[in-house]
Design a protein around this nucleic acid. Sequence first.
DNA 1: GCTTGTTGATTAAATATTCAGTCAACGCGG
DNA 2: CCGCGTTGACTGAATATTTAATCAACAAGC
Lengths: 207, 207
Amino acid sequence: MDRKTAEEVPDLKSLLFDGDVGTREEILEAAFDALHEHGYSELTIDAIGDEFEKSQSLIYHHYDSKDELLIDLLGLLTEYFETRTPEILPAEPRDRIEMFVEAAVGLNDTDRTAIGTFIELRAQAVHDDRYREHFVRSDEVIQEYIADDIRDGIEAGVFQEVDADRMATWLHTVGIGTAFRSVTSDDSWIETNEEEVRDYLERRLYK
Amino acid sequence: MDRKTAEEVPDLKSLLFDGDVGTREEILEAAFDALHEHGYSELTIDAIGDEFEKSQSLIYHHYDSKDELLIDLLGLLTEYFETRTPEILPAEPRDRIEMFVEAAVGLNDTDRTAIGTFIELRAQAVHDDRYREHFVRSDEVIQEYIADDIRDGIEAGVFQEVDADRMATWLHTVGIGTAFRSVTSDDSWIETNEEEVRDYLERRLYK
DNA sequence: GCTTGTTGATTAAATATTCAGTCAACGCGG
DNA sequence: CCGCGTTGACTGAATATTTAATCAACAAGC
């Protein structure tokens, strides 16, 4: 079923919760792990319970339903991306753009397992508006980060005078496409894809 | 849950099966309709049975399991895209590329509901290699169609001398990203995205 | 001793799958 | 042609299993 080689999943706990890890957080992490292991359509409360040190029934002490738990997890993940993204970006506009491209275009194996989980959650938005809302917002936020970087670069004179919003929209779409394709297909196209994107940036954005 | 306005689903039956519509085909269509209505994770045999004129239990006369049925449906859909795509393309290379871009970038509402179903199936590939195989192959096929069109255009002198495989890879990735994003988010970015893609083609591909 | 967290067992509903039996069509020997 | 056995499509109900959710009881800290 799964083609990943290493079993280790990025430790969401340490990423998402600095310090105070209560039961609620343990549950969220268990849900994330179970989601990663079984996929959304096979995700059961039992499976979440298996990833959870304490009793499965304790989940219902903290959440009213499985649904509510998953929506909470989704909120946590999107919020994480929105707040942490600007914190880890380098200072120089060009480095910042490179980092976005790197993240989108050059996924390593560890990232890919996490991104796969994220993609599966996103796919739920096709039929569930509560999911859709989260991604509408997170797309806006991420895209605005990119647009800001482009504007900074233009201001600093290292980028050409492009339409920042337009290029940010496009870059984000390419990122989503690359991520989706890479977790649902093989590797054969990745390098070629990256070449074209970088070539595009050289011609059109960088001075 | 759903933001589509019109209830009509594209008539798979008439699209996929010309003439001889046996029970097996009716089941496949029912599965497609149910998938469209409920989404993959909420898809039950009962729901498929509801879209199916005959008895629900008859499904098991034709298929060993729900799983087998869905894999069969997937095969049918990918095969459809692979064989029909070249048949409906115009003659001129530039028109052909335009049609690909149109399909990827300018999704109307009817298309979007069908694409949503397709995207949900594709998302299963994250955890199921049987799904993955289908998309690896169909990506290759579609991408090769695009590459061929580009080569034709270069030969005919209407396109610049670009690396056809590289641009085809990139175009297909953009198509996947646009499709995925459009069925899991809102509309606000669509036009901007299209502008950038068309601008890119004008600069980089068209003479 | 009251609140909060925790547990294992239990329930009720949902869901996939099976089954016993009907029916219509078909082939074929008389 | 006429009975008759065979076959495959089909049905409604039954079954087996999975799964979400509940509950009564226990423990610990305050």
